[in-house]
């Protein structure tokens, strides 16, 4: 073990930093798969690493060492994991288990509610129109899933805009995007360092649906403008007109690197269609595999050590 066991605890931090740039650069569908799989794999690896740290410290505890017939001195000499580190690992591990249990419970409840509601809605169509004054559009996961749109929003859009909106929501339902976001969310519950990955998946499924809408309507700018229009409608007006004019007069170059999801989606749609970036994808997959390998290697180290300690008893 020694240092190898700490690698699965460090890589998630690296992944957290890389998540947002990756989400911006990779093709959305590939990005969604990669980030979700990476979140699960890294959460698994870091959990294993914590368990190994806790176990190696526990094996040194006199009572447990007797119980397992381990030689305390052999373990102590070979493995520098201190009791404090081991205890800390055990505490974090317990916290993670509780967090995952809570997250599973809430998410399962929310999904069950969603399915129940979707089933109860009238069964003659996918699209349900909400009355009232809200500006609202979302995909309601279910069997079949529904698209819920407020009448006010439909009225505010022209026919191509409505087509773009519905194509976007259909992509969410057809792609079962809620499963990706749920899985990434649970991984982040197990290891909160992975929270940026979960957020990135929330973003890449939107991009996925945007690109789908752009393909269906054949007009990237239309989708961008529709997103912009709906976002403005959904936001209570508080910008004085003067700011609007000034903003337009300023530089044409707009950086969305630190902006919220809506400007980033619009900027991506105003740019060229995303390309598949194999090298970046392969590099990311390799790093995740490396993490997995180091977790496995650390586990084998601990196993070998315990065998040794048993022999030395």
């Amino acid at each position: 073990m020694r240092l190898l066991v700490y690698l699965p605890l460090l890589i998630p931090a690296l992944a957290a930093v890389a998540a947002r740039p990756l989400a911006a650069r990779l093709e959305p569908r590939q990005a969604t798969w990669l980030l979700t799989a990476a979140a699960v794999a890294l959460a698994g690896c870091s959990t294993v690493a914590l368990a190994l740290l806790a176990a190696s410290a526990a094996a040194q505890a006199p009572v447990l060492a007797d119980l397992g017939h381990f030689s305390q001195s052999v373990i102590h000499r070979a493995d520098p994991t201190s009791a404090i580190t081991g205890t800390a690992a055990a505490v974090v591990l317990t916290g993670a288990a509780v967090a995952v249990a809570v997250a599973v419970r809430y998410r399962a409840r929310a999904l069950a509610e969603s399915y129940r509601r979707a089933a109860r809605l009238h069964d003659d169509g996918t699209v349900v129109v909400l009355r009232g004054t809200a500006v609202e559009a979302y995909a309601l996961p279910g069997w079949p899933g529904r698209i819920v749109v407020s009448g006010r929003l439909l009225d505010a859009l022209d026919e191509p805009g409505r087509a773009a909106l519905l194509a976007h929501e259909r992509a969410h339902l057809a792609g079962r995007h809620h499963l990706f976001t749920t899985v990434a969310h649970l991984a982040a519950a197990a290891n909160p360092v992975l929270l940026p990955l979960s957020r990135a998946v929330d973003y890449t499924v939107e991009r996925w649906a945007d690109e789908h809408a752009a393909r269906v309507t054949g007009d990237r700018r239309l989708v961008a403008v529709t997103i912009g229009r709906v976002a403005m409608l959904a936001t209570p007006a508080r910008q004085p007109a003067a700011t609007l004019g000034m903003a337009r007069a300023r530089s044409r170059r707009v950086s969305v690197a630190w902006a919220g999801p809506v400007p980033r989606r619009v900027a991506a749609l105003l740019g060229p269609p995303p390309r598949s970036r194999v090298l970046l994808l392969v590099a990311a997959v390799l790093i995740v595999l490396l993490t997995g390998a180091s977790a496995v290697e650390a586990a084998r180290d601990l196993h070998a050590l315990l065998e040794l300690a048993r022999a030395g008893h």
């Binding site: 509610e113 749920t182 936001t235």
Partner: peptide
């Protein structure tokens, strides 16, 4: 948030 994939959130 994660159950409903909203078209847009407020800005």
């Amino acid at each position: 948030d994660a159950v409903l994939t909203r078209f847009v959130s407020g800005l």
